[in-house]
Computed example of a mutant assay.
Amino acid sequence: MAEADGPAAEVIAPDGAAQICLVCEHASAFIPQRLNDLGLAPEHRLSHAAWDIGGRELAIALSRILNAPLVCARVSRLVYDCNRPPTAPDAIPTRSEVIDVPGNAALSETDRAARVTEIYEPFRSLLSNTLDSFAAPPVLVTIHSFTPVWFGVPREVELGLLHDSDDRLARAMLASAPDGLDTRLNAPYDATDGVTHTLREHAIPRGLQNVMIEVRNDLISDAAGVSRFADILAGMLTKALAEQEAT
C-alpha cells in the first residue's frame, strides 16, 4: 500500500467498553490507484463483488449501540479478501460469481505475496492486537452482507448466523430471532465454503464465543434498513449473551 492509500485496516471506537469485538472484513470497495480498478467493468466497480454493500454502515451502527470496538478492512476484497488465508485460491479472486477480475488473472507469486504483506498481514495483526487489548476475553462478531440473487437464483433467507466449530453463540442468537424475519443457521453459506476464516484464525484458538452475521444487502441499502438491523442484531446478541451468563 502506498502512503497515499492509507492503512489496510482501522479500528473504529477503539475505547468501546463492551466485551465485544466487531469485525467487518469486507467493509470497503477501495482499490489502490496503481491497480487501475483491477480492470473491472464500470458497472462492477461498486458491486457486491467488490465489498459487502451496507456492511460497514451496519457494523458502525452496531458498534455505537453496543459501545464496542470495530475492526474494519479498508481495501476491497477483490484486492485481497481478509476473510481468507493466503493459501486460499479465492483470497485474490480472478472471478466473483459472474464477474471477471482481469487485474488478478496473471499474478506472479511475488505479486500475490505483496498483497498478503500489504493487506492481509496488517489486518490480521490489527485484529489480533485489538483482541489482546481487552481486559477479559471478548466475544468476536463478524458482520457481512450478501446479494439477494446468486447465479440467477433468488435467496429467501434474510439473516444468516454462521459458525465454525463453536456453535454456542450462533444457536443462542437464532433462538432469539424476531418473528417474521427469515433467520437461518449457516445460510446462505457455511464453514465448508471457506467463509469462517476469521472465526477459525482468531476466535477458536482463543476459546472466544463467536458468530458470523450475514444480512441480505437489499435490507440494509438505506439508513432506515441499517438502523432497523442494528437494533435487531444488538437485541439478539445482548439477549443471547445474557441468557448464557444466567445458565
Rank of each mutant, 00 (worst) to 15 (best):
E121N: 10
N129T: 13
T87G: 09
V141I: 05
V141S: 00
A88T: 12
L78A: 13
P137M: 10
A135E: 11
G55E: 01
L46T: 14
R84W: 02
A135G: 08
A41E: 07
A59P: 08
V139S: 04
A136R: 14
R64V: 08
L66P: 03
A73Y: 02
V71W: 01
E57K: 03
N67F: 09
P85K: 08
P138L: 08
I99W: 07
A50E: 01
A106M: 13
V101C: 11
R45T: 04
S133N: 10
E57D: 00
V71R: 01
S108F: 05
A88V: 13
S108M: 04
N104T: 11
L107P: 08
G103D: 12
D111G: 06
N104Q: 13
I119K: 05
I92P: 01
N104S: 09
V116Y: 02
S128H: 15
A88G: 11
V98E: 13
A50W: 00
R124Y: 11
A73W: 05
R84F: 05
S47P: 06
L58S: 00
E57I: 01
N104M: 08
P69E: 00
T87Y: 09
A135F: 04
I65S: 03
R112N: 07
L131T: 01
L70R: 03
C82K: 01
G54Y: 06
A106E: 15
R56A: 15
